[in-house]
Design a protein around this nucleic acid. Structure first.
Lengths: 240, 240
DNA sequence: CGGTAAATTGAGGGAAGTCAACCTAAGTGG
DNA sequence: CCACTTAGGTTGACTTCCCTCAATTTACCG
């Protein structure tokens, strides 16, 4: 699967990470030569599922580009429960903030699956940025999108109706995590029940019960532990 | 009051809005001449308390700088309740996002008190930006701070403990909204009870009850409708 | 094919929401 | 300056819904 990917995106046979830079929207305006330069500067890191990439309070000295896999970004609440802020996957970046304000990280990052990431040092990134200042605009766009996602999450958490929160969560997943088979949509869940609960601000048990209820209502079908088939997307939207 | 302000910050007697640009961190690197240029480009707008500056879905074609007063930025939840995202006051900017991604506004903005704002058109701002590209870095910093605030809010909303949410809210207010009298701190609340409730994700009544409880415990004193005296800041922090 | 971690299901309690009545304070006009 | 009006705040009784705790059941991995 991983090999297929490479074969598909790159023909040179050896540079399995040529993608790092080319995958990322912030570098979309760069030429092939410039991308190649970035690739020669980057280093590659691998993490196992469950591994912590960063802890709150760590000082970031580099820009991370996720080449493969997914990570969750989260904080701990007072009760020691994790509050997930967002999920990042292939092509997403993080650490960009610290590059501009050299502050400590305000969240933890953990690999949800095996992760392959490219790392650009702060210095190298600043060098690239000085050559191509329009990149900072791109970074602004990415941050803007992230802000909008967080606004949606806040709106969701502020909503008392838990069905609505779950619906929001599922609908968000559809564009990126769905394999369409005919006209039914099968979501590949990136999170466990407990993690969904921690994202939505409820307990694991409540998620179980609500999904069960939605299944009874014919809106979706829970297929094993990490798949959900959306049978009636309109009914889901009606919850919002 | 408004005049005193002006007298204090500006001696020319006529340019009551010279501050707009000089108040804003994103323009902090500019020279006096450049600031003056911006001031000649900007236009001035006034809003009455309760007035809506923008609706969700509006297209922003300008950068707003708050010169005086406070606004709340909010969305509506499914139940029609407002979910406040943040409070902006003197020196804060908004609309910066739309300038970079020309998307529609994702929130509403309402004046909490009489507001005086400076407006820079998108074109003018882009012109300034092209002359001084380092401003985009500053914008990134501002957005970074906003992102961090939202992360905190999410963490707070995800926390079940409502006392903790109230404590977080009050402690956030202290730096900006406190008049210290001796060693007791008196917070001037920018929000009504209902708005606090809408910010924290609970009902008006719950806020009343919890503040009453905290008063009984000797942590604070509710003084009328818009003042709270913090008697025991440490006890407040202990809720976190 | 076990063994373990995760998910589900059920029963019970508690905390916040709802609804309604009452109170307080800010603003208005005489 | 005071009485009146009204919006916002507080308080109480009741209800609901989610959390908690515990017992099973189901999925996943060697």
């Amino acid at each position: 699967m991983g090999l297929e990917r490479n074969a598909k995106g790159c023909n040179c046979g050896k540079c399995s990470h040529k993608f790092c830079a080319s995958k990322v929207p912030i570098f979309s305006t760069l030429s092939q030569e410039e991308l190649a330069e970035i690739n020669s500067l980057k280093i590659n890191k691998k993490y196992k599922k469950g591994e912590i990439l960063f802890f709150e309070g760590d000082r970031m000295e580099s820009l991370f580009i996720i080449n493969q896999g997914k990570v969750k970004v989260f904080k701990y609440t007072k009760e020691g429960k994790e509050q997930i802020l967002y999920i990042l996957s292939e092509g997403d970046i993080f650490g960009e903030l610290s590059l501009f304000q050299s502050e400590k990280l305000t969240f933890n990052v953990e690999a949800l699956e095996d992760v392959n990431a490219c790392v650009l040092t702060k210095n190298n990134f600043e060098m690239i940025l000085s050559k191509r200042p329009e990149i900072s605009m791109k970074v602004l766009q990415v941050m803007g999108e992230r802000l909008i996602k967080m606004e949606t999450l806040i709106q969701s958490l502020g909503t008392k109706d838990i069905e609505a929160r779950i619906a929001t969560f599922l609908l968000e997943l559809i564009p990126e995590y769905t394999r369409s088979r005919g006209n039914i949509k099968e979501i590949e869940l990136p999170l466990s029940r407990e993690e969904i609960a921690n994202y939505i601000g409820v307990t694991r048990e409540t998620i179980s019960r609500k999904l069960g209820k939605m299944q009874e209502e014919g809106i979706l079908r829970v297929k094993g532990i990490k798949k959900i088939i959306i049978l009636d997307e309109e009914a889901l939207k009606a919850y919002l």
